[in-house]
Simulated scan of single mutants.
Amino acid sequence: MSVSPCVRRAGLTLPALALAFLLAAGCTSPGPATPPAARSDPPAAGAAPAPTPSAPVPYWVNPDGKAARQMAAHLAASRTAEAGLLRQIASRPVAEWIGTDRPEAETRALTEAATRARREALLVLYDIPHRDCGRHSAGGAADADAYRAWVDGVARGIGARRATVVLEPDAVTHVVDGCTEEQHRAERYELLGAAVRRLKQQPATTVYLDAGNAGWVGPSQLSGPLQEAGIAEADGFAVNVSNFQTTAASTAYGRQLSALVGGKPFVIDTSRNGNGPYAEGDPAQNWCNPPGRALGAPPTRSTGDPLVAAHLWIKRPGESDGECRGGPRAGEWFDEYALELTRNAR
């Protein structure tokens, strides 16, 4: 299951204490990369330079993210141990979940910041109408027209800059498992397909359509719906978003699904899967702030598998899944949980 994104702002000033701590610990801020190798076709105007083959993590690290802010707060209170733990999150690229109110301005600010740092923006679009079936992350666009306008705003905000977009966590799988009401299903497929096509009009945008996780709906059940939702026109699909399935299980699941949808590549969310899924208590709630979990493998494009395009931190580690197990509302910072994820990381 996925979580609601909070509305992100693209403030670019890292708190001074956190910056000093990152540098002292040997973690450089996301400065200019090595100039890219020459290419035969010039990049589109305004596009970010292509990363060099030697840069396995070309994505932007937001220096004003929640983890960086909380790390600065710990440093200001002389809690250096806690700050050191949060550096595991603050120093790595995590996805930016685009908010509902100012999609074009917000996306433009994020992609421009990434371009200035000679990096690529990693974005999540999560605003489909009737989102999350009224659960912890309920909401989304008011109707189909509002959603189309929102996606169009995001696309304009990306422009010709480099961006990877993960499109609508859970949206297809909630149709397949029956959670989304029948009267909304045909519209959902149409909106997803239209969103893929609109985003792919941008010359440097990569789109991955969400495809659930290894513990939910099987590949044979999902392949047809993904095709209805526009997977043929997308660059690939995303698995394990906001979930805890192991990388090995996610890879096996993705490879099975890929074989059913034309050999499409996929990305895996490894943000919190270091200890795999939680297997105690109510299975229906084991996706929501489960205890004992850990950060997973750091983001990289060097996965060792030609079908696995990247391991990414799509879910933002440290943000709550919802008001369960002592957590705040979905998308809000949950410091106790963030520290547990980092302590348990191997």
Results as ranks from 00 to 15, higher is better:
residue 14 L to V: 04
residue 17 L to C: 13
residue 32 P to F: 12
residue 39 R to L: 00
residue 42 P to R: 00
residue 56 P to H: 13
residue 56 P to T: 04
residue 57 V to E: 10
residue 58 P to R: 01
residue 60 W to R: 09
residue 63 P to D: 04
residue 69 R to Q: 15
residue 70 Q to D: 13
residue 75 L to N: 09
residue 79 R to D: 05
residue 80 T to R: 14
residue 85 L to W: 12
residue 88 Q to I: 11
residue 91 S to P: 05
residue 91 S to K: 07
residue 98 I to E: 02
residue 103 P to S: 08
residue 110 L to I: 04
residue 114 A to R: 03
residue 116 R to H: 07
residue 117 A to H: 06
residue 130 H to A: 12
residue 131 R to P: 07
residue 147 Y to H: 00
residue 152 D to R: 01
residue 154 V to G: 05
residue 157 G to P: 06
residue 159 G to V: 03
residue 162 R to A: 09
residue 167 L to F: 01
residue 174 H to D: 15
residue 184 H to M: 10
residue 185 R to L: 00
residue 200 K to V: 02
residue 201 Q to T: 15
residue 201 Q to R: 15
residue 203 P to L: 01
residue 206 T to A: 09
residue 210 D to A: 06
residue 218 G to C: 09
residue 220 S to R: 00
residue 220 S to T: 10
residue 222 L to V: 01
residue 232 A to M: 13
residue 238 A to G: 10
residue 241 V to C: 11
residue 254 G to F: 04
residue 260 L to Q: 05
residue 268 I to K: 05
residue 268 I to Q: 06
residue 271 S to P: 11
residue 277 P to H: 06
residue 282 D to S: 05
residue 283 P to F: 00
residue 295 L to N: 01
residue 295 L to G: 12
residue 304 G to F: 05
residue 308 V to N: 02
residue 309 A to C: 14
residue 321 D to L: 06
residue 326 G to R: 08
residue 331 G to A: 10
residue 332 E to W: 08
residue 337 Y to Q: 05
residue 341 L to K: 08
